[in-house]
Each structure stands twice: as C-alpha cells, then as structure tokens.
Design a protein around this nucleic acid. Structure first.
Lengths: 116, 116
DNA sequence: GGCGATCGTTTCGTTGGCGGATCGAGGCTA
DNA sequence: TAGCCTCGATCCGCCAACGAAACGATCGCC
C-alpha cells in the first residue's frame, strides 16, 4: 500500500513508465485510447459506447474510433447487447490483459527503482 | 516515500490521472510530447534534439515537431547553443512548470484517494 | 581554405484522429 | 402499428503527426 506519493515522485514514475512505453515496440496509443483501455479493464462492467463517451467527456464517434483501433489490436472486443440490440458491450481480451499487466509492471518497476 | 507500489495500484493511479487529463480542458499532448516534456523537466540539462531523439528512440523530425508543438504552447523554448551553433538547447518555462506541477498533483491526488 | 561529418529543420506523401451531422437499426409507448 | 426516441456507426472536411530523404548551416580536421 503506497504512502503519500508526492507530486514529484509521481511525475518521475510517470516519466519512466511513459518513456519506456514510447521507446518500446508496443503500439502507441493516444491518451484517449489508453484511458478507454484502463476504464474498460479497471472499472465495473458493462461498458457501452455512450457510457464511455460520458465518462471520458468525449464524443461518441471518438469512442467508436478508439474501439476500432483497440479491437483491431485485439485489446478489446465488441459484443452486441442481447437485452438491447442497439447497444454494444465491450469485452476484455487476453491480449489486452497481457498488455495492461505489462504496463502495470512497468509502473511498479519505475516506482521500485525510486525507493530507498 | 512510496513503498512497493503494486502493478494494479499503479494502473489504477494511471487511470485516474489520465482520465482526469483527458476529461479536462488542458491541451492533449501525445505520448511522445508528454515524454519529451518530462524528460526536459526531470532529467539533467542540457537537452538537444539529437539527445532527446536517442533517449526516446524516435526520429529527429519527430522531436522537432514535438518541440514545435510544445513551444507554441510555451511549455518549452529553443535556445541556440553558443558553443556549437548547430545545436539547439531546450529551456524550461514557467508555464511548462505550472503544467507539470498540476499534473503531478493530479497523480498525487489519485494515489492519495487509493490509500487506506 | 577545403571537405566530409554532424546539427536541426524542412519537404513530401501518407496515415489517422478530430467534431458535427446524419444514418439505419432497434426499442418504447399508445 | 405509427411515431418518436436512443443506440452505435458512418460520412465529411480538416488538421496533426508520421518516416524518409534532402537541405543549409556549422563544426572539426588536415
């Protein structure tokens, strides 16, 4: 359990993790795409386009496009809502889980290398 | 001083800070632009285009473009290197410092709200 | 002084994200 | 069943970022 992460410390962790991500070979996602990923994987289901648009304060087409990109990477999948066929629910994928797990470990490593 | 920030915890902090940033009214910087900002402000001077290109593993034109964008926001300034007129050094600005300070506090807040 | 190397920038064509408007599919109510 | 609403997707023109190549300016060296 972290204890009062300071702003400066947070920035330094952010720098290391982000730099690693930029340097790396992984796909480079926009801030919105990344925010969408994190929202889908870390907040309670279900996730719809309109819900995400409201949650991220972004237009619906922007969400559709982000999903296009992420599903083409197989980081997320569309699943029609059987209860309301107008809606589309987002499903997590193994590949997306792996991507986020790796990213999370990168953050943890950055934090750890700052200790002591 | 943080103590063993877990991957999951790190992701959750990342989600909250990034979502806040996406929702907010600030300029949305690309991952590269943000990485450039953090490198300039958090690592030792001086910073040159080629140095940043190597550090971020990115092409020089990409760095030039990122600097164009950031200097137009007055987050960074170009200063000719008097010792080697071919080089350009990057200077920090007040506005950039404020931007990063706010962002750092957003991270700190996200971390704090996870405690306990 | 001449010449190759190195600096950051510019140009070029391409790709991809953007908001706003609009669409067709589907749901809801009477 | 008719009319209206809401859903996500698509179309449109625009703008920003991309890599590769070429450029002018400047340096280091002989």
């Amino acid at each position: 359990m972290p204890k009062t992460l300071t702003a400066h410390h947070g920035l330094e962790i952010w720098r290391r993790a982000l730099t690693g991500s930029v340097r790396g070979e992984g796909p480079d996602l926009t801030a919105r795409q990344m925010a969408l990923m994190l929202t889908v994987y870390l907040t309670p289901q279900p996730h719809t386009v309109r819900g995400l648009a409201a949650s991220l304060n972004v237009s619906k087409p922007a969400i559709t496009r982000a999903i296009d990109r992420l599903s083409q990477l197989d980081y997320v999948r569309r699943k029609p809502d059987e209860a309301d066929r107008r809606s589309v629910l987002l499903q997590r994928t193994v590949r997306g889980s792996v991507f986020l797990r790796d990213f999370g470990e990168q953050i943890a490593r950055a934090a750890k290398s700052l200790e002591g």
